[in-house]
């Protein structure tokens, strides 16, 4: 029974769906100016008129689209997100900070994606070549699997930030050393509060978060830690999921 996670690098051409015609970009701009500008700002710098208030002196501020470090990706750390990644973020929103935009039609969402990509030249010059795919189905959350996940949690030193009790109060954080790329203090996620996960709360979502890391935030990518056949990301995921079921029966 060789259950292991395959991390595969696949050259991918971007979503065939993305229409970059001038008409589509113009529609995207209109939607952006109605729906996104208040937080992300007219030039996409994350400095919209309402950008200060949600988190004020702490992270996160709205994304600066002129920078290429995106948090919610299926790509290797350091790379741009795919169009599908952006589509997922815009559709689901970001718990706590950005509302879901499922009220825009799919076409409108693709149009606005085409438009926000114009803020960073990286989207024109760099191709997203690499995808981390999760090939294997999740493993059942047996107590053995959860215990192995807890071991990994300690071995990989997740607790340094997230804390031994996983509520987000690890020593690195309480010393006040954690900042995001804008220099603002950032709170490690309380891993016992599943609904607050920004990158999604399904087993696949959590695996993606741990493997890709959240670029721009101190949450590192653990892709290399899970690349060998005998370490399964699913133990880690099962452990993280168990933290919330334990506190929210």
């Amino acid at each position: 029974m060789s259950l292991y996670l395959a991390i595969t690098c696949i050259a991918t051409s971007q979503a065939a769906k993305l229409d970059r015609s001038p008409e589509a970009l113009e529609k995207g701009a209109t939607i952006y100016h109605r729906a996104c500008i208040f937080c992300h700002g007219i030039a996409g710098k994350g400095d919209g008129p309402a950008a200060f208030f949600a988190s004020s002196y702490s992270a996160p501020r709205p994304k600066d689209f002129t920078r290429k470090d995106y948090k919610f990706r299926s790509t290797i750390s350091g790379e741009l997100p795919t169009d599908q990644d952006l589509f997922r973020t815009i559709t689901n929103g970001i718990p706590g900070y950005m509302p879901p935009f499922e009220g825009l039609t799919e076409t409108e969402r693709w149009n606005v994606i085409a438009y926000i990509k114009t803020f960073s030249p990286a989207f024109q010059t760099e191709h997203v070549n690499t995808l981390i795919t999760l090939e294997m189905p999740p493993r059942p959350a047996t107590s053995d699997s959860i215990a192995r996940g807890r071991m990994m949690y300690l071995e990989l030193e997740c607790h340094v930030c997230h804390g031994l009790d996983a509520t987000g109060h690890g020593p690195v954080h309480t010393q006040g050393d954690l900042k995001d790329n804008t220099g603002l203090p950032i709170q490690p996620t309380n891993l016992t509060n599943l609904p607050s996960f920004k990158n999604g709360a399904s087993p696949q979502d959590i695996a993606r978060t741990i493997l890709t890391g959240l670029d721009g935030a101190p949450m590192p990518s653990y892709a290399s830690a899970f690349s060998s056949p005998d370490t399964s990301i699913w133990h880690m995921v099962n452990y993280v999921l168990s933290l919330s079921t334990a506190t929210q029966p």
């Binding site: 208030f53 929103g93 718990p95 706590g96 509302p99 609904p195």
Partner: peptide
């Protein structure tokens, strides 16, 4: 409803 904090 929108799963965001009040200060949004």
């Amino acid at each position: 409803k929108y799963n965001v904090t009040c200060t949004v």
